[in-house]
Amino acid sequence: MSEREAARLRLRRGPGLGMIALRCAPHVPGLGEALGGALGGMRGAALPERGRIVSANGGAVAWMSPDEWLLLCPRERTAGLLERLSRELAGEHHLLADVSDARAVFTLSGPGWREALARLGPADVSPAGFGAGMFRRSRLGQVAAAFWISGPDELRLFCRSSVAGYMEALLEGAARGEGPGIFDAPGA
């Protein structure tokens, strides 16, 4: 990768994140509090609206589908959170599963991430179509992926761990060369 390319986009495998899949009805009493508490100190606000992700205290909750959430946390907190949620949701119909090992995480840093995604999938990743706080599940290349903005000029995405090698090569390819510059325009 040339220096110029690296300035536009750097690709990093990781960080390894703890991930917990939670399925339960959204109207279960105390769900938001349970999730907020799990993240640490949040009250009620940890139930993201559809298509969004809320972050706090090094963790996050992403909306996966109307009855599914994904908790993201530092790896070492996974077991504790699972236990805690399982306790708090006892008596409610739900499913909790540690899926940390089933997913591979990548971080794209630099202003070129929008173009890299636009090369690989159909989602509208223009500033108008995709902004901070959104959590998008879509297709990159030939596999499913989910991504969100994790910081200034930084995107985080994950895919299934079995296709991590494919995803890495795919992203490396998309990070190479100069794109058409379609998101560089002043008002774009």
Binding site: R50, G51, W63, S65, P66, P122, D124, R137, S138, R139
Partner: peptide, 11 residues
Amino acid sequence: PFCGIMADETE
């Protein structure tokens, strides 16, 4: 209708 996304046929 669940996530509000205008989904492309390939999705």
